[in-house]
């Protein structure tokens, strides 16, 4: 009798152990599966986010670019007048550089596809040194260029070489050599950059833009006069959609 009891007890203990072991195993499997799910979800977020940030490549050539009297630069296929995409930017502003890197190609492509008329408005928003002088020197130099394509190439070059906000940069010598690299051929370019003779005109233009456009900062992107959210402007696919939709309405 007592022997049977103890045997039954042993069996019960063994069964309990086995059950515990099984439970442990199940838990381990559940944990691994859960971790796998979390990893997959995280990877999906990363992939989606990277897509949101992906820039277009400039595929074809540029649309026709004209430098207007007041310094506004317009890029559009002949006859394309709408939708108008206005870009208000400062060569020294880091967020403008980021916008250019992220969405610049999208604007060039849209213009080349005849789907938008892009207008660049270069202004100076900085009021303190060294950023103010950097910005003025660069903008003044850009105004020395009358050929649209050269202007765009110079514009891109300036962003690529944007100095830090804490150091003096965009020196006259640099600006001249970047102009050459951008294909500027006019003989008066060196002199024009060196004299910085366009600073006054640029400042007048800045003041006029600031007072009429009520800008909160740079870059500001407007489609047909309506300011774009930065979460649209800095997401190339969203920017493209916004322009396409504006064309429909």
């Amino acid at each position: 009798m007592s022997k049977r009891t103890s045997e039954a007890a042993k069996a019960r203990i063994a069964a309990q152990r086995e059950a515990l072991r099984k439970q442990d195993q199940r838990r381990r499997v559940t944990m691994i599966a859960t971790i796998a799910v979390v990893v997959v979800v995280a990877a999906a977020f990363v992939v989606w986010s990277v897509r949101q940030g992906a820039s277009e490549k400039v595929t074809g050539g540029l649309a026709a670019v004209t430098v207007q009297e007041d310094g506004t630069v317009v890029m559009a296929q002949p006859g394309v007048t709408t939708p108008v995409v206005d870009v208000y930017e400062d060569f020294q502003c880091p967020a403008c550089k980021q916008f250019e890197e992220t969405s610049g190609a999208t604007l060039k492509n849209l213009a080349a596809e005849g789907k938008a008329k892009v207008a660049y408005h270069v202004i100076t928003i900085f009021t303190q040194e060294p950023t103010k002088s950097n910005s003025l020197r660069a903008a003044s130099a850009a105004r020395c260029i009358t050929d649209g394509r050269q202007w765009v190439a110079f514009h891109d070059k300036l962003y690529k070489n944007q100095p830090s906000e804490t150091s003096s940069g965009f020196s006259v010598d640099q600006l001249i050599s970047w102009g050459k690299e951008a294909g500027v051929t006019s003989s008066g370019f060196d002199d024009c950059v060196r004299k910085q003779g366009n600073v006054q005109a640029h400042q007048t233009y800045t003041q006029q833009v600031m007072s009429t456009q009520k800008l909160g900062g740079t870059p500001t992107i407007k489609i047909n006069g309506k300011e774009l959210d930065s979460t649209t402007a800095f997401v190339p696919s969203a920017l493209r959609d916004a322009v396409i939709n504006a064309a429909k309405s």
Partner: peptide, 16 residues
């Protein structure tokens, strides 16, 4: 932040 990573990167840069 996740929908506009270019802005997020810029915000990180702003701290220098």
């Amino acid at each position: 932040k996740i929908g506009a990573p270019a802005l997020s990167v810029q915000a990180v840069r702003a701290y220098q």
